[in-house]
Each structure stands twice: as C-alpha cells, then as structure tokens.
C-alpha cells in the first residue's frame, strides 16, 4: 500500500536542500516541544490526579524567573529561525544574472510558456539541467500561481504585473507544475510538467521546435504591424522616446519623479501610456490595452530589450 506513496518530495533544484534543511530543523523542534508539553501534561495529570473529592491544588502563584525563561528562550529560537528563513528567501528572490529567461502567461485554465528562442509550449516547460532559469510571469485574467514542488518554488501570477521566480534544476526528469492560487472551475486541471533535460538534449529539442523566429524578432514584427515605429524612431526627432538602449535606464518623468525602465514600466507604457510619461513628451500615445495580448506584450518587451545603443542613428 505504501510503495507508491511518497512521504517526502523529490529534491530537484539547488534551492530544495536549503528549504529542506530548515524544514527538518523545524520538524525536530516541533517534535521536541510537542513531546515535552504532551508528556508533561500527561505525567502531571496522572501524578497529581485528584485522590480525594475535596482536595485542592497547592498554592503556587507563579515565578518571574520561569516566566522570563520561557519568554526569552523561545524568542531567541524564533529569531534564529527568522534569520534562517530570511536568508533562504533572499536567495530565492535574487535570480543569477546568467539565468535563462522564460516568459509565462497564465489564463483560465492553462499555462503558456515562451522561450527566448521563440519556441512556445502549453502546460509543459522544457529546461536544461544545471542552468538557472528565470520565469517572468503574468496573467490574462485572474490570479494564478506557479508552483513546482520538486524545486520548492512558488509565486503568484498576477494580472497587470510581472512577478518572477528562478530555479536551477539539479536532476533530469519530469516534475509537477501546479496552479496554487484558486482560479475557478478547472483550477485543479491547471497543471503541467516541467521537463528537465540534459543540455545537449535540450538544444536538440529547441532546434526541433517550430519557432518562426526568436521572441525579439516576433516583437519587431509586431512593432511594425502596430505602426509603433512611426513615433518611436531610432532618431531623436520622433514623437515618442527613442527606445534604443533604453532598457534598464532610469528616466525622468513629466511632472517630476523617475522610473526605471524595466518589464513592468514598458508594459505600463503600452497599456496605460498616460500614467508615467517621460519628460519632454506629451501624453499623445493611445492605449494598446485589448489590442496587444499578454503574449504580444512580452514579445514587444523582449524586442525593446534587444535594441542597443549602437542601433541609434
């Protein structure tokens, strides 16, 4: 009966052992204190059971030393756990610079993945072993959540925002991918698999994918189709800002303040252009909300990222 029943999940990422170590420490701590309290109350209940109907307990009001001890000792322990948990979380929230980017769009009730190479998949994500992977995620409708138990990572996928997680798989195989934020009728059907492959197998898989072009080149095509290039030109006379070399810079805004040009800023500039206008420009750009899909937005972002200073004319 137990043969097919795991009691502990596989550890398949560099993060998994760190999370598991904290988990085992806390399991030990819980067992220790539960048994301590449990055996004390059972022992007292037997040892000091009422032997005569009119017996009353000893007169003990309390003790400051004990109170301070059992306030300070737990405090020290939990502060230790706090620091430990925080350090693991810091590592989780700092993706390495060389991470492979994959874009994720969740919608009721499926997952869409876009690789930079232009390969797209649904409910399956192929990644190479031993290489950090960063997922940049958003939703088309309600809040979803990417959860890969084997990697011990999870993050909500929120409409109107980009969230991210990263992981570095340590062993090949197929791992569950769950939607962990309730999202309606087929929430429990919004599941998929992460398929971790040897790097050469992964290369072969990418080559065999029917990609029409890289994500950035698809973004470029969309950029032309939407006629963005009539205002955003690589020369400074356009009605809109020059996009070449813009990604990652800090721009000054009309009406004061600054903004870092990241994925979220570009997304906002397309769907809500009036919200944060760059200095020196008028809010003349119409919104593209409902015209560009979330997939398309990600392609445009990848295109803007690909534009270098050198491309300016």
């Amino acid at each position: 009966m137990w043969s097919g029943t795991p009691l502990f999940p596989v550890s398949a990422s560099t993060m998994a052992p760190r999370v598991d170590a904290l988990y085992f420490f806390l399991v030990g701590l819980t067992a220790f204190f539960s048994l301590l309290i449990g055996s004390l109350i059972v022992y007292y209940a037997v040892r000091f059971r009422r032997r005569a109907p009119d017996a009353i307990g000893a007169r003990i009001e309390g003790g400051a030393v004990l109170e301070i001890t059992w306030t300070v000792v737990p405090l020290v322990i939990v502060m230790g756990i706090f620091v430990w948990g925080a350090s693991v979380f810091f590592a989780m929230s700092r993706p390495p610079d060389d991470a492979l980017n994959v874009y994720v769009v969740g919608k009721q009730w499926m997952w869409k993945f876009q690789h930079l190479s232009g390969v797209r998949e649904i409910n399956e994500l192929h990644v190479p072993v031993g290489r950090p992977v960063k997922l940049v995620m958003t939703s088309e409708d309600v809040i979803h959540d990417v959860f890969v138990p084997g990697f011990r990572v999870k993050a909500d996928v929120i409409p109107g925002r980009y969230t991210q997680i990263w992981f570095e798989p340590t062993r090949t195989g197929r791992y569950h991918l769950f939607c962990a934020e309730y999202c309606g009728t087929r929430h429990s059907g919004m599941v998929g698999e992460v398929i971790v492959m040897e790097p050469d197998e992964f290369q072969a898989w990418v080559a065999g994918g029917r990609a029409e072009g890289s994500l950035a080149s698809e973004g470029a095509k969309l950029f032309r189709d939407l006629a963005c290039n009539t205002c955003h030109r690589p020369v400074a006379q356009g009605r809109g800002p020059v996009l070449e070399g813009l990604f990652g810079r800090t721009v000054t805004l009309e009406g004061g303040g600054t903004a870092v040009v990241d994925e979220a800023y570009i997304r906002e500039a397309i769907v809500d252009p009036g919200a944060r206008v760059a200095q020196g420009f008028r809010p003349v750009m119409p919104t593209y909300q409902g015209i560009v899909t979330e997939d398309g937005l990600l392609q445009l972002i990848e295109y803007v990222k690909s534009l270098r200073d050198e491309d300016r004319r």
Binding site: V19, L22, T30, I81, W84, A86, V88, V153, A180
Partner: peptide, 30 residues
Amino acid sequence: AIGFIGLFTVGGLTGLFLAAVGLDVHVTDT
C-alpha cells in the same frame, strides 16, 4: 482542555514553518 493544549501546541509550532518566509514559499497554498 488537555486535548486543546496538545493540539494547539502542534498547531502553533507548525505556524513557525509558515512564518519562516523561505519555507513558507513552498508550503503556502498547500
């Protein structure tokens, strides 16, 4: 009352798993 103290102890201590933010990421929503 004895049942409460025992179960509340387990319930409270497992709360520490969830307060530890690096571990909560894995176990939240499960």
